[in-house]
Write a protein that binds this DNA or RNA. Structure first.
Ligand SMILES: NC(=O)c1ccc[n+]([C@@H]2O[C@H](COP(=O)([O-])OP(=O)(O)OC[C@H]3O[C@@H](n4cnc5c(N)ncnc54)[C@H](O)[C@@H]3O)[C@@H](O)[C@H]2O)c1
Ligand SMILES: NC(=O)c1ccc[n+]([C@@H]2O[C@H](COP(=O)([O-])OP(=O)(O)OC[C@H]3O[C@@H](n4cnc5c(N)ncnc54)[C@H](O)[C@@H]3O)[C@@H](O)[C@H]2O)c1
Lengths: 204, 204
DNA sequence: GTGGCTTTGTGAATGTGAGCACAAGCACAA
DNA sequence: TTGTGCTTGTGCTCACATTCACAAAGCCAC
């Protein structure tokens, strides 16, 4: 394919493919066609072919896509081939759930530090990590941590974001129900469960 | 505006407006212009005006939108003017965090029941709710519960979805990393934190 | 090899949403 | 009553995303 800007939506779907292919690898399947994969993921086959083709030829005509090497190539595209470390800010209910959640490892992601500002929490353990003081942010860069998750109250989110950005964090997953101001070279993705639930009655 | 199908993206943004207006109401502001609101929400003013105009005229030219009545009208559009009850399936780490989360009430949403299949959990309390057996699903309809949240392991999600749909649930928020098959009159929204975090390294 | 079957890769077409620019409309002051 | 200033509501255009349709390409059996 000639030069094409890669759609954001395509990038958003890539981890879906990574996960599906990881599962297929476990099942021992060696190749998968766009049709089979589409059925699993409830997508259209041409969508998958086009998504993958943005990054070059992955498959074999008549056969499909090789499960293992395709997974590896997508991981490389998403920079998930090297372990990516993240800091979690906010060791509350949601934060501790996230801290012990094993589901990040499929993507080579690791929660490598937990920060809170509550003195009674600092020093105690969540899983194998010790909760650190916000001042520990200064050490993040040296520890190779470039991603952050915000699980603090909405009022504190902007302040924490500022601290993380200052500390060299380049990507943020914001769980708090608010908007964040960050320099434009920092990427923010927000998740708001209440908003997501809030649209359902409209469709019902 | 002439007849227009309302974009899904517009619907997805509506709770954003509800939340912002609720905050403005608390602050005692009586009207807000699309420009001011856009600044708060990091959107473009015409986007907000267009979104709102899909549902008719809300504002006053030269002044802006009345905070209270606009909030009320949007709530009505989203069917959030009547309290909406939801059942939470899965009283694990994430489930219990959600169960005690107060952030749903801005939207008139309420977690009204918690279900788990672990016998050691059934009967114990999370907040003011008692964890119920999956058999309790049969009572959901009678209790006016039409929404469901799935916070169970991915392997169990489809089974739980089936039970809820059978019990008359019409909208599902799926927190498990998997796709769900449901009848098409049931609306599913999925949230996958790991996937959301997984795209960040690409942009960094 | 050659033919038939299958599936990819991709231009072109279609569908969907975002942004702009401006006319229409309201408030308020003079 | 008229004028001024501001903000909404919206047709139009452009950008982005999805879907289609088909040629190109590999595999396998004979
Ligand atoms: N619990 C949920 O299910 C849920 C759902 C959707 C969104 N959220 C959002 O996630 C965020 C966290 O929710 P939660 O339920 O875990 O709340 P929580 O109150 O249980 O935890 C918040 C934690 O953040 C810490 N904190 C507060 N200010 C801080 C600061 N400036 N620096 C560092 N740490 C700070 C607190 O000490 C606490 O440990 C909130 O913004 C909430 O709106 C939660
Ligand atoms: N914890 C997180 O931060 C996080 C993040 C992203 C996604 N998720 C997803 O959310 C889901 C729940 O995560 P968790 O960390 O709370 O897991 P968990 O293991 O702590 O909790 C799962 C709960 O579901 C219950 N359960 C299992 N099968 C059930 C069934 N058939 N019917 C009813 N209940 C059943 C279990 O008894 C348990 O209480 C998982 O799918 C997970 O992938 C969790």
């Amino acid at each position: 394919m000639k030069y094409h800007k890669i759609p954001d939506e395509t990038i958003r779907r890539m981890p879906l493919y990574v996960r599906a292919l990881a599962l297929l690898e476990q099942e021992g399947q060696e190749t998968i066609s766009s049709r089979q994969l589409a059925e699993r993921l409830r997508l259209n086959p041409p969508q998958i072919r086009k998504d993958l083709s943005y990054f070059g030829a992955f498959g074999t005509r008549g056969i499909g896509y090789p499960v293992i090497s395709t997974a590896r190539r997508i991981r490389a595209i998403l920079r998930l081939d090297v372990p990516q470390k993240a800091v979690l800010v906010g060791a509350g209910r949601l934060g501790t759930a996230i801290a012990v959640y094993p589901g990040f490892s499929v993507f080579g992601l690791e929660i490598a530090a937990i920060i809170d500002n509550n003195p009674t929490k600092i020093g105690s353990r969540v899983g194998r990590l010790e909760i650190e003081h916000i001042a520990a942010a200064a050490t993040l860069k040296a520890r190779g941590i470039r991603l952050g998750l915000l699980a603090v109250p909405a009022e504190a989110a902007q302040g924490c974001a500022d601290v993380l950005v200052q500390a060299g964090v380049k990507g943020l997953l914001n769980l708090a129900p608010c908007c964040l101001d960050v320099p434009k070279q920092v990427k923010v993705v927000s998740i708001d469960m209440a908003m997501a639930l809030g649209v359902l009655p409209y469709y019902v």
